[in-house]
Amino acid sequence: MSEIQKTDVVVIGAGPTGLFAVFECGMLKMQCHVIDALDMIGGQCTALYPEKPIYDIPAHPSITGGELINKLEEQAAPFDPVYHLSQQVTKLEKQDDGSFELETNKGTKINAKAVIIAAGVGAFGPNRPPLEGLLQYEGTSVFYMVRKREDFRDKRVVIAGGGDSAVDWALSLADVAKSVQVVHRRPKFRAAPESVSQMKQLDEDGKIELVVPYQLEGLKGEGDQISAVVVKDFDGNTRDLEADILLPFYGLSQNLGPIADWGLELEKKHLNVDPTTMQTSEEGVFAVGDIITYQNKLKLILCGFSEAAMAARAAHAYAHPGEELHFEYSTSMGVPSE
């Protein structure tokens, strides 16, 4: 039987809002454990756009998703958060003393005085194309995200999809890859018009190739390395595209996962919260970021930061009833030195 770890707050989700919640809790002298289903912190910022610029973070005219997460991790570090990655919370139960016992799919058990859910869109994963033998190539020559474009230098890359991710990475990888071919089932792309225009210009200049209208049909290779991507047009004609890498960008499958079974009040797969405290329908359980809804809610990272600050203060009031909390600015409080 695994030992039950104890902490002040469990933060479910290690995306930008969850990481900032750790900082805000730390400033109130509350220790945090953080649980995330991914094998890395950062949520969608790390998984989907680590090298794409974000323009609406205050004081940063432009910052990449990866840089933002690095800064948030550094900001939270003085408070020694404990990360439990590659784990999903499967059980959340309120105890007689008002605390909460959580358990993950890997058997980790934690008792917390309060809980902050910062799970973004919930559990998410790639929509995989239905190709035979696909799994044997995943992680070595088939990837659903680009973390570092340098990983693809001098590689023959096939990109499949017609949305922003496919178009954006076609533009970015054209500078580093040996070749880039973009497979889409129709000539029209569902991406920003200016980006589509730039991609079509690269095609005309011979720097990339648009393979349209085609669909993925199969993969060829040995072991875990592909050598070609087989595509088929609507007349049944097939073509082999020589390739080292396949990047299928068909979006994400998203669901709340076990959160939907915790008895919390939901509205269209989002958690209802009190916008003044971020408390859910369960006293002591708070939620912030993209997973919540309230009147005029904006799905912006900067709004998530504000919600995290409010949730931390409300969580402190719940975890430490009767303890008066005087508001202080960070300039006068400072942060602990590591």
Rank of each mutant, 00 (worst) to 15 (best):
E51F: 10
K6V: 00
E3Q: 08
D39R: 10
S2T: 00
G18D: 04
G42V: 03
L28D: 04
E24M: 13
H33P: 00
A119W: 04
E51T: 15
A21H: 02
A77I: 01
Q88P: 02
G42A: 09
V9H: 09
A76K: 12
D97M: 06
T104N: 14
H60D: 11
G66H: 07
T17S: 13
E103G: 03
G15C: 04
G107F: 06
S99R: 05
H33M: 13
T108M: 13
E51A: 14
G66T: 05
E73K: 13
G15P: 01
I69M: 15
I12Q: 04
I12D: 01
K29R: 14
I57Q: 07
I110R: 09
P16W: 12
K91D: 07
Q88C: 09
N70K: 14
A37L: 06
H60I: 02
P50G: 08
V89M: 12
C32R: 08
A21C: 03
A14D: 01
L85S: 12
F20D: 02
L38N: 08
L48M: 15
I57T: 04
S2Q: 07
E103L: 07
I54F: 14
G107W: 07
H33A: 11
A112S: 05
S86G: 03
A47W: 11
G66K: 06
T46C: 07
E103Y: 04
H33Y: 12
S99N: 05
K6E: 08
Y55I: 03
M40V: 00
S99D: 02
P78M: 12
L38R: 12
S86A: 15
D80P: 01
E103T: 10
Q44G: 06
P78C: 14
G18R: 10
E93Y: 01
D97W: 06
G42C: 09
P78S: 13
T7V: 12
K106V: 03
P81F: 15
T104P: 03
E103R: 07
H33W: 10
M40P: 00
E51I: 13
F79Q: 11
A118G: 02
K71Q: 13
I116E: 08
E24Y: 15
V115Q: 06
I63V: 15
D97I: 05
I4G: 02
F20C: 01
I35P: 01
L28C: 04
A77Q: 14
Q95E: 15
A37Q: 07
P81T: 15
C25W: 04
I4L: 06
E74L: 05
K71D: 07
T46P: 02
P58M: 10
E103S: 12
G98S: 09
N105T: 01
L48H: 07
F100H: 07
Q5N: 07
P78Y: 14
V10S: 09
T17W: 01
I116G: 06
L92S: 06
E3K: 09
K94C: 03
G15Q: 02
E103K: 12
V10K: 05
L68N: 11
D56M: 10
I110K: 09
P16N: 11
K106T: 04
Q75E: 10
A59G: 03
K94R: 15
K52I: 04
V115M: 06
A77T: 05
Q44H: 13
P58G: 11
G26I: 03
N70P: 00
I69Y: 12
M27K: 15
I35V: 15
A118W: 04
M27E: 06
I110H: 06
P61Q: 14
V89P: 00
